[in-house]
Design a protein around this nucleic acid. Structure first.
Lengths: 219, 219
DNA sequence: TAAAAAGTTTAGACGAGTCTAAAAAATTAT
DNA sequence: ATAATTTTTTAGACTCGTCTAAACTTTTTA
């Protein structure tokens, strides 16, 4: 059984390692968790003792099979709760993250099973991120950042990256971008990477490079 | 802002003091919280410093106005979550307590407001206990333990006391007692306090004194 | 009403999680 | 390839919530 803090570290390491595909440095974890490197060192020793990560002094940590499983379970809970908040309680997609950060730590497999059923076994959360199934399997199709779409075609919004800032989500709502929106790429500015798009064939807007990196669309 | 532990102590003190109407001794709190008296002494000093209780050495604690408000807010959350689990997720009434003990600590006034609305502003939880409104007001009609009903009339089940044991709830389900059930009192045994009742005009059973003390009915 | 019992508090310790400051290792720059 | 810089770890300390053992206060009993 993991403590709340251990769960948060494990989840951060999972995300920083891109789902376990690369190793993660102490300072990266410290940044992500808003703690000091010394605290991270202490914690990775504990997670390593529990076989959830492997830790090599001065060279960072790698997540183990079991660590991945545990992390995916937490992420599953987080995304199911976000889905609940938006679909059932009418939260806005920019209001759910902090609450789900708390709810994801509730310990009750039965609760999650029943919540999943209540929500009709959703496959993605309100930001388009896939919800791991109860075995930790993620079903995702191909998706690429808007800024990397070649040429001037029309694409569909599949997901948006959230990080910390709900203000990005508010911005997207304001300009009319949502999961499922159709974006026609009209023009790309070489000098700053900004893109002109037409949203749902109605509204023309410019989005910055920064923004277009965080809008994931059909390839 | 209270810690999880402080919230649990405050809630225990609220319940032990019958909603603030009497003072509570250190040992009673220790029993209720399954800790040692020494730990209670430490904690009541902290809650007292926060003006949630008044503490007089060797003479126990009394809950303050603010303490009552905070305790009622936690109880409100607990009972709303229990209602959610039963009404929306199809939990059984004997499965909800432990999960609600966790959920009651989630910090988000917006969540509770929306949950309340989603549940259609329920006035009682699955065990018949009143849900304080957002101002901490409790709307309860008169209710008395089954064992104290005078004579042999027919009464309606309004609530059941839960304490720790879900086995009492399982027992009640098994014999057919639920919130709203009609109980006709057929006979009372002097020697052991047991009562013979007819449930919903269908099923005759004997219930022990112990059980009849924890079934609350219309007067 | 004095002695015994019961209940409560204090003192000191411990684990979890965090921090700062200093030491050690790795990286980079000259 | 050695010096300077950056990163990481260690050491020691602090808070929170807990404990045991001992001291103290209140209540009960004889």
């Amino acid at each position: 059984m993991l403590s709340l803090t251990e769960e948060n570290y494990l989840k951060a390491i999972y995300h920083l390692s891109d789902g376990g595909s690369k190793s993660v440095l102490t300072n990266e974890v410290a940044d992500a968790m808003s703690t000091k490197p010394a605290s991270v060192t202490d914690m990775v020793k504990k997670l390593s003792a529990k076989k959830l990560i492997t830790y090599e002094k001065y060279y960072g940590v790698t997540i183990t099979k079991q660590g991945k499983t545990d992390a995916l379970n937490i992420i599953r809970k987080h995304r199911l709760w976000e889905t609940f908040l938006v679909q059932k309680l009418n939260f806005h997609w920019d209001q759910v993250h902090e609450v789900a950060e708390q709810l994801e730590h509730i310990q009750s497999p039965l609760l999650i099973e029943k919540l999943d059923e209540f929500l009709n076994f959703p496959v993605a959360d309100p930001h388009g991120h896939p919800i791991p199934d109860k075995n930790g399997k993620i079903h995702t199709g191909q998706q690429i950042p808007l800024c990397e779409v070649p040429g001037k075609k029309t694409v569909t919004v599949l997901a948006v990256n959230v990080k910390e800032s709900s203000s990005f989500l508010q911005y997207l709502s304001k300009i009319g971008v949502y999961i499922g929106a159709k974006l026609a790429i009209l023009d790309k500015a070489e000098f700053d990477g900004s893109i002109e798009i037409m949203i749902d064939g109605k509204k023309k807007v410019f989005v910055s490079k920064e923004a277009s990196q965080n809008i994931l669309v059909t390839p």
